[in-house]
Design a protein around this nucleic acid. Structure first.
Lengths: 203, 203
DNA sequence: GAGATTCTATATCTATTAGATATAAGCAGC
DNA sequence: GCTGCTTATATCTAATAGATATAGAATCTC
């Protein structure tokens, strides 16, 4: 499944819940799917144009001043099912916190502890947001969808709680490190000296 | 911190461990940082060129036939510290499994269960790989780095275990769903009927 | 109630990026 | 010694993120 198809899936899926404008699509995706998905205008508008060309989506009321509302066609519903059945594209990880911690010796234990504390707070905040989503999902006319939505909320909660547990352990581990090894992190590795390492020839 | 700077951080960081060629950089990033970071050639080569231009990296032995080895300069080490201190770029989530589950009603409980079982297996596999990384980190001359490397490994393990626990709960929840609500998921919502919903005007 | 000002909705545009593809060198088998 | 395969290296292109431009609507001020 190509990237454009991933975007098409998200757009068709959102339109399957309710017809809306391109702008509303972005808002809806951000607020409802925000914990595990994101799309930008630069993806949404071309995707809508292509979906319309393929007759999967229908554009209504393109007045000059008023934005046009897009709605699924029957073929679009069909196509959504098809896309959902295809295997997902693997995610390319890019975790800035982990990158910093991996080279954490350059930063010193104290700076690392600050980063981890921040990450812990973010996880707590996510947990709170998810609790709101959970109660919000009670309302609304989408009773049939709710069990599935709860699955995604639960996944977010598990991940957030794991992040918090990890952070607590990590903070503790770093504490013993700053006590023992390097009381003055900034002064630790002399900068100018010995930056040239032996070269490994094509491993 | 811009995206290019993120790439520069990863490249400088990897070169701080050991000088190497562009190709080896990609391999190293993939094998060692693979659980939380990824870079492609299209990012690495331009980044190396720019870093060389700035005098942060030095190119050695650009024979016609032999690839050139890149090494950090003292200024490069300095710059790495600087970059690591900057706040990380926020990640844009794009979780294909969650997208599928969110619109899971279109797919039916059974198909969802299969997806979740696959995810569970992947998490188990990651856990096994991390166990290997953990024991590998014992060896090698990088004793000072090890505590930080273990932090990242531990984060991966927490996340993987959380994924497994979530999957088990989700599978159970879906089981009760397929028993009760929709024994024949494919036949559930009649395709052609009632695909036109009431339009919400600019919420 | 008219004008000014801010805000929101919408769309486009550009620099970045992923990853497929091209090229070339070494190596193994025949 | 030649041929085909594998690994190393680099480039190129289509897709993407998200910043920015534009215009209309709403609100505030006088």
């Amino acid at each position: 499944m190509s990237r454009t198809e991933q975007t098409q899936t998200a757009v068709l899926g959102a339109l399957s819940v309710m017809p809306m404008t391109g702008y509303a699509l972005r808002e809806e995706i951000r607020s409802v799917l925000g914990h595990f998905w994101s799309e930008s205008f630069g993806q949404i508008y071309p995707a809508l144009a292509e979906l319309q060309r393929q007759g999967l989506v229908e554009r209504r009321g393109a007045d000059r001043a008023r934005a046009s509302v897009f709605a699924l066609t029957p073929a679009g519903t069909e196509r959504l099912r098809e896309l959902l059945s295809e295997p997902a594209q693997p995610v390319r990880p890019r975790n800035g916190l982990m990158l910093r911690l991996f080279f954490g010796r350059q930063l010193g234990p104290e700076a690392c502890r600050i980063l981890i504390r921040e990450a812990r707070e973010e996880a707590e905040a996510r947990l709170a947001e998810l609790a709101v989503s959970r109660s919000e999902s009670q309302e609304g006319p989408h009773a049939q969808d709710r069990p599935y939505w709860l699955l995604t909320i639960s996944a977010g909660e598990h991940a957030a709680r794991a992040a918090i547990a990890w952070a607590d352990g990590a903070l503790e581990a770093l504490e013993t490190l700053s006590d023992s090894a390097a009381p003055h992190p900034a002064a630790e590795p002399p900068v100018g000296s010995k930056t040239v390492h032996p070269v490994r020839e094509h491993p």
